[in-house]
């Protein structure tokens, strides 16, 4: 329990550091936010008045604290360009990006764990060697390029889905998920390849340990040793990797949304970056960072459950 509390504390600390970095990064940008809101024709008096209203004259740390507390409460500020609350712009988009990331993650887990086991079991066999080469190739393909190829092959030639025919979850959740399958595949592909490679290596390492020999000496057959003994040990480093992969996949969906013209948060993020609409950028970046940090915390918790040795010094 102490371990989890400690990890929770570290999560909060990381969140504070990240938010401070994000806040400062957007504060050193030259340009007056009040001026940005009002446009260049506004009178200096009005600009000064708005500056005071926005609290821009306060010290940096005060402004940071205000911004952070507002963020926690779900108040992400007002868009410079659209003059509407940022929350109203992005909240309805988050489920799209998140669903896609989680689908890709589930695909990765479901596909790569059996494949890792099969390749490790038949180490250096024909299947193992071909999968290893195919994996190397897949890892070399950027997800957006595989996305383009998937659109071409499965969308245009095989007509398994309509490119650009995104259906929002508010209209039909089934069709929404169905459209997201191929984008999720594009995100998952390189992660599957990496996970297979990693799990395979980990399984082979573990199979050479002393406890595996002990397991054989008790009359276990190969499967018994593999599933009852090695797998749980081998999966431990893979959990860390999968945690990082989930974060990567959520971030990677920014690119994939462009490829498949999915109106998730990616489009808002990119237009806001080119329009220098900083409150929106800040909110999205902080949102994704928060998800990533929470995922990392959950990974630590899962770790503690799987590996009894973790966190011993704290208890």
């Amino acid at each position: 329990m102490k371990y989890i509390i400690k990890k929770f504390g570290m999560m909060v600390a990381t969140l504070l550091v990240v938010s401070l970095c994000v806040f400062l990064a957007f504060n050193i940008i030259p340009g007056d936010p009040a001026l940005k809101m009002l446009g260049t024709e506004a009178s200096p008096e009005l600009v000064e008045q708005v500056r005071a209203e926005m609290g821009l004259n306060d010290p940096v740390l005060v402004r940071y604290a205000r911004w952070f507390l507002n963020f926690i409460r779900g108040d992400f500020g007002t868009s410079y360009n659209y003059k509407v609350p940022v929350g109203s712009m992005i909240l309805s988009k988050i489920p799209i990006t998140l669903t896609m990331g989680i689908m890709a993650f589930l695909m990765t887990v479901i596909v790569s764990i059996p494949m890792g086991i099969v390749t490790a079991k038949h180490e250096n066999g024909l299947l193992d060697r071909s999968i290893t080469v195919i994996n190397q190739v897949i890892m070399a393909i950027p997800p957006f390029f595989s996305g383009i190829l998937i659109t071409f092959i499965f969308g245009m030639i095989l007509r398994l889905f309509t490119p650009g025919g995104f259906v929002n979850y508010t209209v039909s959740f089934g069709k929404f998920v169905r459209y997201l399958i191929f984008p999720a595949v594009a995100i998952a592909l390189p992660k599957v390849a990496m996970t297979v490679k990693m799990l395979r290596g980990s399984l082979i390492d573990e199979s050479q340990r002393d406890y595996a020999r002990t397991a054989y000496s008790r009359g276990n057959n190969t499967n018994g040793v593999l599933y009852r003994h090695i797998l749980k040990n081998a999966i431990i480093p893979v959990i860390t990797f999968l945690g990082m992969a989930l974060a990567d996949m959520i971030a990677g969906s920014i690119v994939i949304e462009q490829v498949f013209s999915i109106p998730g948060i990616s489009r808002i993020l990119l237009t806001s970056i080119s329009n220098r609409d900083y409150p929106v950028v800040e909110a999205i970046i902080m949102g994704i960072a928060t998800i990533v940090i929470v995922v990392n915390f959950l990974v630590d918790v899962i770790y503690r459950i799987v590996d009894p040795r973790i966190g011993l010094e704290d208890e």
Binding site: M10, A13, T14, V17, V18, C21, V22, A25, F26, I28, I29, A247, D248, I250, A251, G252, I254, V255, L269, I273, S274, R276, Y278, V281, I285, I288, A289, V292, I293, N296
Partner: peptide, 25 residues
């Protein structure tokens, strides 16, 4: 290490996007 950990929490593509949005394209 806290700062590195915090930055590490950012997928590199996201971190690069933040910096690009600050410094321009």
């Amino acid at each position: 290490m806290r700062i590195i950990d915090a930055l590490f929490a950012f997928p590199s593509i996201l971190l690069a996007l933040v910096i690009v949005s600050v410094f321009g394209t």
